[in-house]
Design a protein around this nucleic acid. Structure first.
Lengths: 148, 148
DNA sequence: CACGTTCATATTGCGTGCAATAGGATTGCG
DNA sequence: CGCAATCCTATTGCACGCAATATGAACGTG
């Protein structure tokens, strides 16, 4: 009574991806709990920590994170409410909103310095495997987004 | 000025996973639009199509899909409202709610028979690569969930 | 057979994701 | 310069995810 092998859950790349992504997000929970951050908020800070003195527009962050303003605007307001970033209109172009790390937001980078290693220890794979997997996923994302 | 290489966005497996998973979900959107299904609803139907005559409890579905009742209960109510499943208390154990495919819900399996192939053609990789990636992700999920 | 414990699902609250739309700023073309 | 097209962000609406809690059913021990 198989008949529809293409629908078998465990054969589907999409399902493995969906499940792994949520498992990863859950794994970050306990590591971020002290700071009150969610995983998407943490990722947003990763983008800002890259060059701490440099304000980023909502659009730049969205392009970097593959998120739109409908997600970022409220997320950034929460980061601002927690005191980790400030939001202000760009004087040179009043359409843009610039997001800047605060001292507290930058300080989080030190408080969370051990997080990547802690996650790495939960992956059950060698760093080289993780990097290979990461590169395959990045390629996959590019293919999926090219089909739009 | 690097200083924190462990925080580089493009070095993070978690971010590649997060981005790829959302890209995959978006890729399903147009393919499911005709049926009114979301991707999580589609995955739930995959679990039910496996053995169409067999009712599944909310708990069984949750274990299979790695989702809890907070997600599944409203999702299943929407599937029921669309006429694709029915929900009823198990007479043998009134705590349990049994989810059963309707005729329409089963018919979707034929209407969507081409979807897996359509997705496969967007992945930019050979089937064997996709299967290998899927298996790595499944292993990763197991490792992440073992650390709970 | 009472009754405390465990189990299965539902509800609540909050934070995403994302499509669709709105609203104000800037740009470019005539 | 005027103004339509474009750009950028915000808002709205809906559907997840998931932790925490509630509710009612079933079970187990005395």
């Amino acid at each position: 009574m198989a008949g529809y092998p293409q629908f078998e859950l465990d054969h589907q790349l999409c399902f493995a991806l969906y499940t792994a992504s949520r498992a990863m997000t859950r794994a970050y929970g306990p590591l971020l709990a002290d700071t009150g951050l969610t995983y998407p908020q943490y990722v947003t800070l990763l983008a800002l920590w890259r060059d701490p003195g440099q304000p980023r527009s909502v659009g730049e962050l969205g392009e970097r994170l593959h998120l739109d303003s409908g997600t970022l605007t409220p997320l950034l307001k929460r980061l601002a409410a927690m005191g980790y970033v400030t939001r202000s209109r760009d004087a040179a172009d009043e359409r843009r909103v610039l997001v800047t790390l605060t001292t507290d937001g930058l300080a989080l980078r030190d408080r969370l310095a051990a997080v990547p290693m802690a996650i790495a220890s939960c992956l059950g794979m060698a760093p080289s495997e993780g990097m290979a997997l990461r590169d395959q996923l990045t390629t996959l994302t590019a293919s999926l987004e090219a089909t739009r």
